[in-house]
Design a protein around this nucleic acid. Structure first.
Lengths: 168, 168
DNA sequence: GAGCGCATGTAAGCTGTTACATGATTCT
DNA sequence: AGAATCATGTAACAGCTTACATGCGCTC
């Protein structure tokens, strides 16, 4: 379901696009928020068109199809954004490692937390140089700030945890 | 894979337990870190026993099986914790809503962010009264702090975003 | 015309969810 | 005795990943 919303959102932000375009856009903009590869995107677009959420605007060389958002698609996108209570299924390997940290002895635990910190640092850097979505700086702005805030929180947790591990 | 680790970790923390015990423990402790219901846990335990990660210590009334962690299980748990670079597949409906916020007009957007904030607030409260895992306060301590830090970051983001939306 | 990147797709397999099924104990 | 809840499971389906397949268009 959320994959549909993500695709509708990208089409709303960028206008008509092919599956390939959307897959690229996905990677460059939504990646820190939702993930999907082309193998998931292509068939989903077909289903969405069959369900009347998208229209095929044009068909070009080598089967390239340009999709546009249809009225029903806009409607569902808007309704989801305005009404949906977001589901909160957390599945974080990082948090799982944090949970089980006491199983390791101190120096192994320190190494593990250092790894978490390094990753978060890298992510922070990546987020800082994300390009705007379809030259439309509004889109993604709030999600970017949310990502930054949460990543900074992770780094602070790592520092605090390293300190606790080292002074015990 | 991570489900196995979570189950191994709980068995390491708590000692011998049945599938039902583990499902309850999961819900009460790991829920903010990883999710799994009994329909996923029961068959996984059977497979883990078949793979030699667990041993069936006893079989009681109505098919109740008590699992213990086997040496191979301990080994795999330790190796995963010590070596595994945690995968970072983010799939957050909240972040997706944040991403697409500009599609809504201002008052709808404000309402959506208010909802996010209320949920985060509730989660914060829930986290604060989590019981210790199997009377073992070490386990889950670090993950709890990580959850708190990230949830607080979300609340701060919501406040900042509400302010931005209201003064424009 | 050979090689490389572009662009689209299919298929098998794994993970996770929802719905259903069933017998055992405990409570009233 | 009947109802609730404990405890274990199965089956169908939805969502996602990995691996494979293929053909077009451009460049050298």
């Amino acid at each position: 379901m959320s994959l549909r919303i993500a695709l509708l959102g990208l089409l709303a932000a960028k206008g008509p696009a092919s599956g390939y375009d959307l897959a690229k856009l996905f990677e460059g903009s939504l990646n820190h928020v939702w993930q999907a590869g082309h193998t998931q995107i292509y068939p989903e677009l077909v289903r969405m068109a069959a369900d009347g959420l998208l229209a095929v605007e044009a068909e070009g060389a080598r089967g390239r199809k340009i999709y546009t958002i249809a009225d029903e698609g806009s409607r569902q996108l808007h309704d989801w954004l305005a009404d949906r209570e977001p589901a909160v299924t957390v599945r974080s390997e990082t948090a799982l490692q944090a949970f089980l940290l006491p199983i390791l002895d101190t120096d192994e635990a320190i190494a593990a937390v250092e790894r978490v910190k390094a990753r978060a640092q890298k992510r922070l850097d990546d987020l800082k140089c994300l390009p705007p979505v379809a030259d439309n700086p509004k889109f993604g702005k709030y999600a970017l700030r949310l990502g930054l805030a949460q990543t900074r929180a992770t780094i602070e947790w790592a520092d605090e945890t390293l300190h606790a591990l080292r002074t015990k």
